[in-house]
């Protein structure tokens, strides 16, 4: 051992200087990784604002998956064929799985699932507003799959390259499953469109109702989206809201012809100058209303989540208590062996 010496504390100013120097090095390393478009992992240093932005985005995404289970779970018991029932069950189950990966990804940023769940139930956290619209008919299962999941795919495929490793990797699996979800929605609409006049009308009605809300899933127009710029600089977001929306419109325009239905927007056109798809005006006032909690199902969705969570409290407590007892038992057994 080294000879004991009396350490005098370094002067405060030199400590600050060291810390500032370390911080500057870490920031420079982070900036270099952003410039190289490489990945940030949970143990890497990251700016507080980057962590906060990601945590907000990933947890909102997880909440959206969990709340998004409800309008579809609503139809599991009434699915009109056993095959459709099986496919719908598998789909809603996938969404619970997506919620799980995403909460796990968010946990790597230092917040527990319990805290995130509490924020959701208390109305402190947001989820995608699209799930505050009702699913009154079977055709909504088709429209949600084809349009809502379709929009989600446009949004999420670029997120597979998000700069935060756990998020990007979670999105790879999520996207694979989402593309199945979109196909099943497409197939439901196709079958309805080729069915009886009542079935076809049901399908067209659902497409009419979900069209504008699906387009608004990409968020406000670029001029009015203050956070987008920073997210793009951090390689979280790769394309702007309007770019993604345009891409989605282009996809639907072709597919709706195959389905044999129409989109409720006669202003859709391809603009040769900007090489983008243009659409009719969207009611952003309604978007803000639903976002502010005044949508058709906001209260219902949150209440259902709250109730499931509270009804399950005794089960979670029992599981923890049992696990603790098992650990004690194992330790006692090990003591006896020793």
């Amino acid at each position: 051992m080294a000879q004991h010496t009396t350490l005098s504390p370094p002067a405060e100013s030199s400590l600050d200087a060291d810390a500032a120097g370390l911080l500057a090095d870490a920031q420079a390393e982070f900036d270099r990784m952003m410039a190289e478009d490489s990945r940030i992992e949970p143990r890497d240093w990251m700016p507080g604002a980057y962590r906060k932005t990601l945590l907000r985005q990933i947890s909102q995404h997880a909440h959206s998956e969990i709340i998004g289970m409800q309008p579809e779970a609503n139809w599991i018991s009434r699915a009109p064929s056993l095959k459709r029932k099986a496919v719908l069950m598998a789909k809603v189950q996938d969404e619970a799985g997506h919620g799980l990966y995403l909460y796990s990804a968010a946990e790597t940023l230092g917040q527990s699932r319990d805290t995130m769940m509490a924020d959701l139930i208390e109305g402190k956290a947001r989820y995608s507003s699209i799930f505050n619209y009702p699913a009154p008919t079977w055709a909504d299962m088709g429209a949600i799959g084809w349009m809502v999941d379709g929009a989600a795919i446009c949004n999420q495929v670029p997120l597979c390259r998000a700069s935060y490793g756990p998020y990007g990797r979670a999105m790879v699996r999520v996207c694979k499953e989402e593309s199945f979800h979109q196909r099943q929605g497409f197939e439901i609409l196709l079958e309805l469109s080729n069915g009886s006049p009542e079935q076809k009308a049901m399908a067209q009605d659902a497409v009419n109702r979900w069209y504008a809300p699906a387009l608004m899933m990409f968020g406000p127009p670029d001029d009015d989206s203050p956070n987008s710029k920073q997210s793009m600089a951090w390689n979280i977001k790769r394309f702007s809201n309007d770019e993604l929306r345009s891409r989605f419109v282009g996809m639907m325009v072709e597919q709706v012809k195959v389905i044999g239905l129409t989109l409720p927007d006669d202003e859709i056109r391809f603009d040769e100058d900007t090489r983008t798809w243009q659409h009719g005006p969207l009611d952003w006032g309604e978007f803000q209303e639903v976002l502010a909690g005044r949508g058709p199902c906001n209260a219902q969705r949150l209440e259902r989540r709250r109730q499931a969570h509270e009804d399950g409290a005794w089960v979670r407590e029992a599981a923890s208590a049992y696990a603790a007892k098992q650990r004690t038992k194992q330790m006692d057994e090990m003591d006896q062996v020793a």
């Binding site: 969990i66 289970m69 599991i76 095959k83 069950m89 189950q93 619970a96 799980l100 499931a308 399950g312």
Partner: peptide
């Protein structure tokens, strides 16, 4: 069992009970 999907005590149970329901539905079919 399908009724539990989106109402289970834990997300893991939404998945587990949904899975069991799916298996049973497969056997039924």
């Amino acid at each position: 069992l399908g009724h539990w999907i989106s109402r289970a005590p834990e997300l893991e149970e939404d998945v587990a009970l949904g899975n069991i329901a799916l298996d049973q539905l497969g056997h039924a079919r």
